[in-house]
Design a binder for these strands. Structure first.
Lengths: 213, 213
DNA sequence: CACGATAGGCTTACGTTGTAAGAGTCGTCA
DNA sequence: TGACGACTCTTACAACGTAAGCCTATCGTG
């Protein structure tokens, strides 16, 4: 419980503390619950105080996105093959997005360019070049894998129901869509397996392209 | 120029007219420009009038999303192979998202379940089953392709610069990331080519899985 | 034809949002 | 000591979504 502060008493805030509180608020109550006043209340402070640590709300969101991106860029796969490097890239990106699903709209609406992500991209390109992929092919591969992981993360959380349920589709009248219905009943496979299945298919496709002209 | 209406004179609105105006407003000025008052002004009407044709703003957004989805679900690929069916699916979904990039955050934050999309999904599943894929595999494939297209659309428009430029990456100091820099210089390939490259790789991967256990 | 119901428009008003402006208070360094 | 800068609070404003209610033309029914 935060003691009542008289005026002039500092609250001991900092940009980091503000971002921390904002992140947990978004995680707990969603993106539209992130209000300057609510965030301030969370910090035991008045709304305008926040503006001494963050220039405006857009910058606050940018800060949250950047945090997520640097978390996603963690792996540097010291001496892995190009395939495992791509696999790790996809998994860490997916994991970062899934760790803060409420933040996703914000993440997706700004470019994901930070030193950390650039460094990872460069490493991956290096592996691909060493494996024999021409440079423009490497770029296409990088975009494809990143895009694939992004798309899977999005369609995984656009579903408001539980994480491994049949989800929205369960509530639909499936009599009109027989084949889809059978697949949904048969599909006890967890989303993670689906993710790897598509990813591995793509990687095998790239490999085949590497061998033949 | 809209004539001033006295009170009691109708403006001839309708749900369709409202959605039309909302869509062009979003296309022209972005999602955050979609305000009840601004939309009303666009229609030559007061803000509250809109509520006679749409229950609230969320429903308005849902209407826009549904329009995009039915546009995306157009192709029914009468008697195509599973591969071209998947290719058409991916292309039409990508095209629909790219046609209204400002709407993307809204599209991505609600589940894409409408009769039209379900019908297309069912058709695709049918093709996959006929080709010999087990049911849960078919579902994984469907999700993978849809997710891939979504991801490509997102990373394509998170880039605020021109469509076929080097984009955000052009403004970055590339000296620190040599391999990435070379790839960007070499990569004159248009995004569409990148899209097909990754997509075809994935499809070839699925095909290989069909042949071997 | 008369008349009540309804649909579609406008006006006003309320609570909430982001944030500009400014005044007070403390710790720090000259 | 005195001045300053960093931090916090208070007050205020424009713009947002929308609830409530009024007014009028149109339409269905007698």
């Amino acid at each position: 419980m935060p003691m009542k502060r008289g005026q002039g008493q500092r609250a001991g805030l900092s940009r980091e503390a503000v971002l921390d509180a904002a992140m947990t608020l978004v995680d707990r109550e969603g993106l539209e619950a992130l209000t300057m006043r609510r965030l301030a209340a969370q910090l035991g402070v008045e709304a305008m105080t926040i503006y001494h640590h963050v220039p405006n709300k857009a910058a606050l969101l940018d800060g949250l996105v950047e945090r997520l991106l640097t978390a996603a860029a963690a792996p540097l796969f010291e001496d892995a093959s190009w395939k495992t490097a791509l696999r790790e890239l996809a998994h860490s990106w997916l994991a970062a997005l899934r760790a803060h699903p409420n933040l996703m709209p914000a993440v997706l609406s700004r470019p994901a360019v930070t030193p950390a992500t650039l460094r990872v991209m460069d490493r991956v390109m290096e592996r691909l070049a060493r494996a024999g992929f021409p440079h423009e092919r490497g770029l296409a591969i990088l975009y494809s894998v990143a895009g694939y992981a992004t798309g899977q993360a999005v369609s995984g959380t656009a579903d408001p129901d539980g994480p491994d349920q049949t989800g929205v589709l369960g509530a639909v009248d499936l009599a009109a869509y027989p084949t889809l219905a059978r697949a949904l009943r048969a599909g006890s496979a967890r989303p993670a397996d689906r993710f790897d299945y598509g990813l591995d298919a793509m990687l095998r496709g790239f490999e085949a392209d590497l061998d033949s002209p």
